[in-house]
Amino acid sequence: MMGCNTLKIQIWLAMAYDANRRHKDCIALYKQLEKTHPMISIRKQVADFRYIAEAPKLKISNDEVVTIPQIGSSWDWYAVTWSDKIEEQEERNRKIVAANSQPESPANILGNLFLLRPPSEWKKSDWGIVTLWIILIGTTFYLQR
């Protein structure tokens, strides 16, 4: 008895055969799976796949064929725009990392505190904690009188 993954791989292999116009190999593999697979539901699914593979192919002209442009072609404006956006974001991230890697001098931190401007790396939650500590210290001095 074969493992579940092996059987899935065989189904994918049969689909790959069909996509590569190796219809005889595809149908032979489907027939083998139909006979040997232990699960009835999979055997039915494989039978449906085989039925589709054995169906007569439609003859269509080149005018009726849908073409998909390759990535990077002149028609692919979305991918070009997307890659540009990714490059812009990476450039912004590099600038932010470079700016954050330079520590602020202690004088600048005190100057920012006295001007009520947070240091650049502080968040709103950091200011909330500082404010809470100032209130607690003030309350402690007030209650000790």
Rank of each mutant, 00 (worst) to 15 (best):
Q10M: 14
I11N: 05
I11Y: 06
I11M: 10
W12L: 15
M15V: 06
M15L: 13
Y17F: 15
D18I: 02
A19T: 05
N20A: 07
N20L: 11
R21C: 09
R22Y: 03
R22S: 03
H23K: 09
K24Y: 04
D25S: 09
C26N: 02
I27T: 04
I27P: 00
I27E: 03
A28I: 05
A28V: 07
A28N: 12
Y30F: 09
Y30A: 01
Q32P: 00
L33M: 14
E34N: 06
K35P: 00
K35Y: 02
T36M: 10
T36D: 15
H37Y: 08
H37D: 15
P38A: 09
P38K: 12
P38G: 06
M39Q: 10
I40P: 05
I42Q: 03
R43G: 00
Q45F: 08
Q45G: 02
V46T: 03
A47V: 03
D48N: 13
F49D: 01
R50L: 01
R50P: 00
R50C: 06
Y51S: 10
Y51E: 10
I52E: 11
I52F: 11
A53D: 03
A53K: 03
A53R: 01
E54F: 04
E54D: 10
A55Y: 08
A55I: 02
L58S: 12
L58G: 06
K59Y: 13
I60C: 08
I60A: 10
I60Q: 12
S61W: 05
S61E: 10
E64Y: 07
V65M: 15
V66K: 12
T67Q: 10
T67R: 11
I68V: 13
I68L: 07
P69V: 02
P69F: 04
Q70I: 00
I71T: 06
I71H: 03
G72N: 03
G72Q: 03
S73R: 04
S73L: 01
S74E: 12
S74D: 11
W75E: 11
D76S: 05
D76P: 01
W77K: 14
Y78R: 10
Y78V: 09
Y78I: 08
V80R: 14
V80P: 01
T81Y: 08
W82Q: 13
W82Y: 15
S83G: 05
S83Y: 12
S83K: 13
S83R: 14
S83W: 10
D84I: 07
K85M: 13
I86N: 10
I86M: 13
E87L: 08
E88A: 14
Q89N: 15
R92H: 11
R92T: 08
R92P: 02
R92M: 14
N93P: 00
N93E: 15
R94D: 11
K95R: 15
K95G: 03
I96W: 06
V97E: 12
A98W: 02
A98M: 07
A98E: 14
A99W: 06
A99C: 04
N100P: 01
N100Y: 03
N100L: 08
S101A: 15
S101E: 10
Q102H: 12
S105K: 14
S105M: 11
P106Y: 09
P106C: 09
P106V: 11
A107L: 13
N108C: 05
